[in-house]
Design a protein around this nucleic acid. Structure first.
Lengths: 229, 229
DNA sequence: CTATATATGATAGTATTACTATTATTTTAG
DNA sequence: CTAAAATAATAGTAATACTATCATATATAG
């Protein structure tokens, strides 16, 4: 990606961390190494003890940045959605045609992730693997309502609202824009998961097909809405 | 539902359990009470110790039926998908028109669950709540490939294949039938979850709308495939 | 240059969990 | 009535997800 823009930060709700990991070298290493550990062995096998060792530090130091590993995951997923939002804006901002704008947005959402130089210590490809393998774990918990109230999912909600608005700009009367976007965001990760583990349950073993599939779904739905027999 | 058909059993892969819970009264109580416990407090707070107490028995007895609580959940979700498949067949079997058949299938998939008298000890409404709140936990694990190889997800795969075939009967050339079905099965549970916890991310706060939404998505996609500008 | 605050590191301890193992008791079947 | 099978009770283990405490290193303010 562009090496024009550096020193940008994705802003994360401070309630998610105890001490901002972006504020120190140690904190950045927690994020950086944490991503690699979770991407390769899965979130369930990830512990702060192992992370402490890995960064040449200590369990207790990690606990000074994050209350628990669940919040660590919420931090990572929030960062991911924030980054996706940033790329979405960057890539669609200059487009005036509503249809073309939505088309480009769907490309950004569904195409495979590439490394972004603007965020040195974060391996976006590995982070995307985490999203594919753990996508629902941040919110499928008994505490989801409290955490939602505390604003931990704001970025995700903003992202959906943004794409939803693009849909409304194509077809103001379409009544399912939020459902369509939430279905596609989750569905896209899910199709990647299926391609990796259950190839017989998807026709999108090539990312090109995934993008085509979701675009066909979205535009056919918009183009025929209100015109059914 | 019909009280015509009794004494039917959903067949579950024996690798999922150590001893078939359907084979004894104690086993049935494990399923029955386990469903209520997980539905009300969530899977993460569920333990075999608590289940043992609840059924007036013992942790060690539960372990004689299920290797661990993860397999217990796989059992429940397999049962659910098996039951959905059974209802799907029951409700679509007599329909000859391909389009109408698919339409009915989508109703069955997306409409709220009601209690089914044919399976006395299972509370399908509570089980559906589990599906909505924990839907991805059976497969978002590090062991998914082994478990898939062992056949633990056969019922789910068969269900998708079945609906996928209905799509092919409507439009043989449509190349995304598996992806469309897997997106809708997962997406339907997800929309129910959003309606309960993130109402701003869905337009389907009423189940009627959910069914309409997914039908519109499916049929518009099929009706315009190959006819885009 | 020292006193102080702050960040980090090391160690120990706790409650819970997810089991395994063993033995005792009850139920069932022949 | 006896043997086998099923269930119950109890104990124990390793790992986990923390909390608490204290020691040390480092940065900074006066």
């Amino acid at each position: 990606m562009q090496n024009l823009i550096h020193h940008i930060q994705i802003t994360i709700n401070p309630g998610i961390y105890l001490k901002n990991p972006e504020s120190s070298d140690l904190g950045k290493r927690m994020i950086s190494e944490g991503i690699h550990m979770i991407a390769s062995s899965g979130f369930d096998n990830f512990t702060f003890r192992k992370l402490g060792e890995r960064i040449g530090s200590n369990e207790s130091s990690v606990y000074r940045y994050f209350e628990n590993k669940h919040k660590f995951l919420i931090y990572l997923t929030s960062w991911y959605w924030g980054w996706l939002e940033y790329r979405l804006v960057l890539e669609t901002n200059s487009i005036t045609d509503a249809r073309e704008k939505l088309d480009r947005a769907l490309t950004v959402i569904t195409q495979p992730v590439e490394t972004d130089d603007a965020f040195g210590h974060i391996d976006e490809v590995a982070l995307n693997r985490i999203m594919v393998n753990e996508y629902s774990k941040p919110f499928l918990t008994a505490e989801v309502d409290e955490e939602n109230k505390a604003g931990y999912f704001e970025i995700y909600k903003r992202l959906i609202a943004r794409v939803s608005e693009m849909i409304s700009n194509v077809l103001p009367d379409y009544p399912y824009s939020n459902s369509l976007v939430s279905t596609i965001l989750e569905g896209s990760l899910h199709q990647y998961f299926l391609a990796a583990h259950f190839p017989s349950l998807t026709n999108c073993n090539d990312p090109q097909d995934l993008t085509k599939f979701f675009k066909q779904v979205v535009f056919s739905s918009l183009d025929t809405y209100g015109k059914e027999k």
